[in-house]
C-alpha cells in the first residue's frame, strides 16, 4: 500500500523527504508540497506517514477496503513514545492498532559488521538469513509466536 500526500494538509516542511529510505518523497516545484514521485517504488515502510507532523500523508488501501470512504491514518505521539494507527474500512468498521516508537537516533546502533563472526557452514546452509534481528529470535531460541506465548488472535487483528 504505497503512500500519498493530501496537499491541502501538507505545509512543505520536508520531514518526509528527509526520512524516505527510497528517496521517492519529494517537493513539488509549483506548490512546494510533498508528493510521492513513484508509488510503484514505495517500500511501504510508512516512515513518511509516521513522520508527518501535519498528518498529511495517508496510505492508498488495497481493494478489500478501498475506495469509498476508507482511511488509514496514523498519529505519532512523541511525548508518549507510541504510534497509533486507525484503519477505517469502507464498511465503516474501524480497527485501532498501537505500537511503541522504535526510531533510533541518527548514527546510533549501526552494526559493526567487522566484529561480527563469519557465518558457520550450518548458518550458510540454513534457510534463515545470516543476520536476523536477534530480538525476534529467528536464530536463537526460535521465533516468538502468538501460540508459543499463549496469545490468541483477535478478530480482525493480524500479526
Amino acid at each position: 500500500m504505497p503512500t500519498f500526500v493530501y496537499m491541502t494538509r501538507c505545509d512543505g516542511c520536508g520531514y518526509c523527504v528527509d526520512i524516505c529510505p527510497s528517496d521517492i518523497m519529494h517537493i513539488d516545484t509549483t506548490w512546494r508540497r510533498a508528493y510521492n514521485i513513484e508509488p510503484d517504488m514505495c517500500w511501504e515502510c510508512y516512515s513518511c506517514v509516521k513522520a508527518c507532523p501535519m498528518h498529511a500523508i495517508d496510505v492508498r488501501g488495497y481493494a478489500d477496503f478501498c475506495p469509498l470512504g476508507h482511511a488509514v491514518r496514523v498519529h505519532r505521539d512523541e511525548e508518549e513514545g507510541i504510534i497509533a494507527w486507525r484503519i477505517k474500512f469502507r464498511s465503516g468498521r474501524i480497527k485501532d492498532l498501537v505500537a511503541p516508537i522504535t526510531t533510533k537516533p541518527w548514527g546510533k546502533y549501526i552494526p559493526d559488521l567487522k566484529q561480527v563472526p563469519a557465518p558457520t557452514k550450518e548458518q550458510r546452509e540454513s534457510q534463515l538469513l545470516f543476520n536476523e534481528p536477534k530480538y525476534i529470535r529467528l536464530d536463537d531460541g526460535d521465533l516468538y509466536t502468538l501460540e508459543s506465548q499463549g496469545l490468541k488472535m483477535r478478530q480482525g487483528v493480524y500479526y
Binding site: Y15, E78, A99, T103, K104, Y135, I136, L151
Partner: peptide, 19 residues
Amino acid sequence: STMDLVRDIPADQKFGLCI
C-alpha cells in the same frame, strides 16, 4: 499482547529519540 512480542528489546533501544 502486541507489546509482548518485542518485550526483550532493551528500553533505551525501544524508545530512542524521536524524529
